[in-house]
Structure formats: structure tokens, C-alpha cells
């Protein structure tokens, strides 16, 4: 049997006997995690993400946590990627473009910046590193060493996570990529704005003006709108057009939530789906993993949009689930 047959046999076995229900769904944020990042060219006011030689890229990690509390520290290296066709990317033999670390728990949300040299030899820049959430990262660790990844945080305090990100650089301004952006959200057909006054650490709805749902409610629709023109045109390589053919970006939207169920993890805004509507189901009353207090539980949502060419947008929303 060929490899394809093996693959599909495995798929069939998974479909017939899958047991992934015991694992936390990916969309469920049950612990601190990096939910995305935002990237921009320093000084560019049009949302451009394609840095030209001599320009400086700024990267800011975005975090999520059930209660919203994340105090990160990190160490990051920017470098030219080594040739590799699989596995975790790693730096080439040249000197890193930038090395930076933030070991102060209170300052971890500042951006990481890297300036692209005029004579830079690659069309991407690789950033690798590690973040320790609610703990202090070991600044001496080598992110390319698998053994080191088990001790990202010093003294075992905090939650460590290795990171990698490869960012495409620009060739000329006309072909530059710009970051997409959400323009609005709806919840059950109603406009859904930012959660004003919601501070990290707050899990009770008391004193907050949030849209409300009740446990065991049926699913509701969440709608996301993007800017017209965010699906930028570019040359896409396909089997029929190895040199590339004109295409518009697909926008990948990831939905994350701190409690309850999302219909799916990803949605793509593409030629066939010009808007993202995803269903959300509040937690059940008998859900042992969720404690809904009498005054209501704040449920946080993170919506992450990627154009897969270096453009990112991360937005948070919240609602209140009452008993």
C-alpha cells in the first residue's frame, strides 16, 4: 500500500476511533498563551509590514489567559534563517540581526525591534526565542536546543513557550504587504464592542457592561468584518503557475475563547467566504471545568487575523455568562 493509502487508513482510523475528546480544544484558552502578534514597520503609518532594507521592524506579542493576567518576560533573536525544508526553523551561520531580552515582569509587553541591514541576503527574517508567562525567562537558553525548552522559566515559576516566526521582507513599496484589520464584531446580530473597564484578573461580571448569555443557552453567532481591500493582490505560485499568478490573500481568522465552545478554530476569508460567522455556545450548567458564579462569569474572546504574508491583527472581546 502506498503512503497515500497509509495516510487515509490512518485518517479513517482516527475518524472511526478518535479519542481526542479528552484533550482541551485548541480554541479554549485554559492557561496563559501567546495568541498572536502584531508587526509593523517603524515609522510607516499605512500599516505596512514589509520592511525594506534599512528599515526597522517592530513586533509585539499578544497574550491571552482565562483571567487575562499575563506578565511575560522573553528572549528573542532575529537572524537570517538557515536553509531547511522541515522542522523548527533555526538561524543560519551569520551573526544575529538582533538579540533582545526582557526579564522584568512588568515590562514584558514592550515590542521587539530588528533593523534590516542594507546588504541583507534573504527575503525573510527569522525570529526565534522563548517567553515565560508570569515568570522570568532563562536568558541564557538556546532556543534551538530541544533540551533547553523544558526549562524556559527560571526556578520553574511561570509557563514557558518557545516561539518562532518568519517574516517576509519587502522588495519594493508597490508590492508591500499591509496588515489587515478587523472593522467590527457582532454577537447574535448586535454590535459587539470592546469591553470597557475590563481589567486583567477580573472574572466576575459585577460592575461590567457586557453582553450577556446564560449557561445552557443555544449557540449564538459571532460575526467579524474586515476592511474592504484587506485581501490584497499578490502573485501566488500553484502547480499550474509555478511562476505565480495573480491572486488575493486568504485571511485566516483564529477564534479563541476562555470558556464555552466555538464552532471551529479557524475561518478563512477567501473568494468563497467573504465574512466570518462562527457559532459560540456558552458553557453548560453541568460543565465541571467551568465555575459560573452567581454574578456571572466573564468570558474572554481573542480573534486573530493573519494574511499569511506578514500582516496580523489581534482583537479581544468579552461577554458575561450568567447562571
Amino acid at each position: 500500500m502506498g503512503r497515500g493509502g497509509v495516510l487515509l487508513s490512518l485518517l479513517a482510523a482516527l475518524a472511526l476511533g478518535g479519542c481526542a475528546d479528552e484533550l482541551d480544544p485548541t480554541y479554549l484558552v485554559v492557561k496563559e498563551r501567546v495568541v498572536g502578534l502584531e508587526v509593523g514597520v517603524v515609522g510607516a503609518d499605512d500599516g505596512r509590514t514589509s520592511a525594506m532594507p534599512g528599515e526597522t521592524l517592530s513586533l509585539e506579542l499578544r497574550y491571552g489567559a482565562p483571567d487575562g493576567v499575563v506578565e511575560p518576560t522573553w528572549v528573542l533573536i532575529a537572524c537570517e534563517p538557515a536553509p531547511s525544508s522541515f522542522g523548527v526553523p533555526f538561524c543560519g551561520e551569520g551573526e544575529p540581526l538582533a538579540i533582545d531580552a526582557e526579564l522584568d515582569l512588568g515590562e514584558g509587553k514592550r515590542p521587539f525591534e530588528v533593523t534590516i541591514p542594507e546588504d541583507y541576503g534573504s527575503d525573510t527574517v527569522l525570529m526565534i526565542g522563548a517567553v515565560c508567562m508570569n515568570g522570568v525567562v532563562d536568558a541564557s537558553l538556546n532556543p534551538s536546543d530541544p533540551e533547553a525548552l523544558s526549562r524556559i522559566c527560571t526556578d520553574g515559576e511561570g509557563l514557558g513557550q518557545a516561539l518562532t516566526y518568519e517574516h517576509p521582507l519587502g522588495v519594493d513599496e508597490d508590492a508591500a504587504n499591509r496588515a489587515p484589520a478587523f472593522t467590527g464584531f457582532t454577537l447574535a446580530g448586535e454590535s459587539w464592542g470592546e469591553a470597557e473597564g475590563l481589567m486583567p484578573g477580573v472574572t466576575s461580571c459585577e460592575g461590567l457592561d457586557l453582553p450577556e448569555l446564560r449557561v445552557d443557552d443555544d449557540e449564538v453567532e459571532i460575526g467579524m468584518a474586515v476592511r474592504e481591500g484587506d485581501r490584497e493582490a499578490y502573485l501566488q505560485r500553484t502547480p499550474d503557475a509555478p511562476e505565480g499568478e495573480p491572486a488575493n490573500e486568504d485571511l485566516q481568522i483564529t477564534h479563541l475563547v476562555s470558556a464555552g465552545d466555538m464552532e471551529r478554530l479557524f475561518t478563512f476569508i477567501d473568494d468563497e467566504a467573504l465574512e466570518d460567522i462562527v457559532e459560540y455556545t456558552p458553557p453548560a450548567a453541568d460543565d465541571e471545568d467551568v465555575d459560573v458564579p452567581a454574578e456571572g462569569l466573564v468570558v474572554r474572546f481573542w480573534f486573530v487575523m493573519r494574511d499569511l504574508r506578514g500582516g496580523h491583527d489581534v482583537v479581544m472581546r468579552a461577554l458575561c455568562v450568567r447562571p
Binding site: 501567546v34 498572536g36 506579542l61 523548527v88 513557550q161 518557545a162 516561539l163 516566526y165 483564529t254 493573519r306
Partner: peptide, 18 residues
């Protein structure tokens, strides 16, 4: 699998093998 590295480009994770 001894760890993972999050790929911020796609939001997925690389397994890191022993």
C-alpha cells in the same frame, strides 16, 4: 515529544522531539 515551538506565522505549533 519533549516540547513545542509556537509558529506565530500560522498559529500552529511545531513538536520538538526527543
Amino acid at each position: 515529544i519533549v516540547g513545542s515551538a509556537q509558529d506565530l506565522t500560522s498559529g500552529t505549533y511545531f513538536p520538538i522531539y526527543g
